[in-house]
Design a protein around this nucleic acid. Structure first.
Lengths: 157, 157
DNA sequence: CGTGCTGAGTTGATGTATCAACTCAAGAGT
DNA sequence: ACTCTTGAGTTGATACATCAACTCAGCACG
């Protein structure tokens, strides 16, 4: 045994949580890929754009909401642009907007039901309503703590 | 708003949990990379090998414990082999063992304290003991459900 | 015997994530 | 006016993840 700083209980809590996340993420992504050809990253961007006024947002704004660093967002937008899911449009002197295309919106709309169903099946249904709320509450505590910690690249607007 | 199948409460629970786990994963990995040059994947393999008798395991066994598919494990072992963290040794007619090297063990031992400290700082300390237990319990419920669902590639031995 | 199946392992292609380094416009302060 | 800094955006290198397709020993069954 190499771990000396975490108790058995803490280590198990961490490993269980970590493995759960990894597996859940993988499953969600597989369903999404298989049914609609979208990755989790694609879906996140499309969902955020579809919720924005006029279906357009600045890349750095997207990055802040999604919690991504700028180069990740840039590469992602480039790949999505090649597939016709979004376009980049000039907006102002040195401003660029990421804009969801009709194809992007159609792809998203087609993907939503299956995605929601998979989230329900894998994440929501196995829990009681109380457990779900409790889990989300604790996750929120950890998330707040993380975001308050070292914003690294993604400063708050 | 595009989501029609999940309630507002469910959607928020999902997004909070997902983003928290992603951010936590990223932070843990950054600390690990910066302090010891290891990725989460490297650390997982080294930790599992270090806990195995003689520091050796079959790749498919590693894959089962870690919950990885075989090609992911293969590529990972190849990369780690190039860096001298592990070696592959013939064992039996068609059997290969992944074996942790002295360098791999030393790297792991050097990485453990900082890694444990970061897990404590970001995941354990912000919660009460009761919250941590509750979180781990619920994560376990979801994980069990996932593993019972569609084992896909990683069948049980 | 031989035909076909299974499962560990391998390979290459493609997509995704991260880091460092860079450009360049806009503002700040002198 | 001039330099300095900041921050959005871009780029390329590298590492990591996923999928499909393949090899090949061992085994089952007929």
């Amino acid at each position: 045994m190499v771990q000396q700083r975490l108790t058995e209980r803490e280590l198990r809590a961490w490993r269980t949580s970590f493995q759960m996340l990894e597996l859940l993420r993988t499953r969600i992504e597989q369903q999404l890929q298989a049914d609609s050809g979208l990755s989790n990253a694609d879906y996140t961007v499309l969902a955020l754009l579809s919720e924005a006024p006029d279906g357009r947002m600045r890349p750095y704004e997207l990055g802040q909401v999604a919690g991504w660093e700028k180069s990740r967002m840039h590469h992602q937008l480039t790949r999505m642009g090649k597939r016709g899911l979004i376009t980049r449009e000039q907006c102002g002197p040195r401003g660029v907007d990421a804009v969801i295309t009709a194809k992007g919106l159609a792809t998203l709309k087609k993907a939503v039901p299956g995605h929601a169903q998979e989230i329900r099946r894998l994440f929501i249904d196995p829990l009681t309503a109380e457990e779900l709320d409790e889990f989300a509450r604790i996750a929120g505590t950890i998330l707040d703590n993380l975001q308050a910690d070292q914003p690294a690249d993604i400063g708050d607007a």
